[in-house]
């Protein structure tokens, strides 16, 4: 199988890999680069556990070919905490007891981050809309919605 070179930035670090043509970004991140924070819950774009942010846009890494990410800026949950300090979303998920098994959590946090980057003060409806591509089987969603709303409020207070 032909291998193609791919270079991108992952959470601020330069990465360069030769990957098989047709490899998904999810596989490239997990198997080649060792960032296992995106999870493979369905490999068919229906669960959201693999969500990452590519050039500021929320993407499903299981449906994104790695070779299309050449030159991209890719962000995952593994890179969210800076200098050991949790991002407000991470803090809010902890405080709201919004994780149970935790498997959906990295994808949920990425979906929420994409929302807050674009809409710092979202309504509940906007949070619901933003999370609607992410499946959670444990929590019943409400704690996650509350965590995102709390993080948004914390962020806007910090900005004020």
């Amino acid at each position: 199988m032909a291998k193609v070179p791919v270079q991108f930035t992952l959470n601020g670090s330069e990465k360069a890999e030769f990957i098989e043509s047709g490899t998904t970004l999810l596989h490239a991140l997990r198997d080649k680069i060792g960032d296992t924070s995106p999870k493979g819950g369905c490999h068919q774009g229906t669960c959201g556990a693999c969500s990452v942010i590519i050039d500021g846009e929320l993407r499903l890494s299981c449906l994104t070919l790695a070779e299309t990410c050449d030159g991209a800026d890719i962000r995952t949950t593994a890179g969210l905490a800076e200098g050991g300090v949790l991002h407000p979303l991470q803090r809010a998920f902890l405080d709201a007891f919004a994780t149970q098994c935790g498997f959906c959590t990295p994808g949920m946090i990425m979906a929420a981050k994409a929302l807050l980057d674009r809409t710092p003060n979202p309504s509940r409806e906007e949070v619901v809309e933003a999370l609607s591509g992410n499946i959670c089987r444990c929590t019943g969603y409400e704690p996650i919605i509350q965590a995102v709303l709390t993080a948004a409020r914390a962020d806007s207070q910090n900005a004020a």
Partner: peptide, 14 residues
């Protein structure tokens, strides 16, 4: 066979 066909309430259906 997937989450599009196997239905559960989403965050908007609570």
């Amino acid at each position: 066979t997937d989450f599009n066909q196997y239905l559960m309430p989403g965050p908007g259906d609570l």
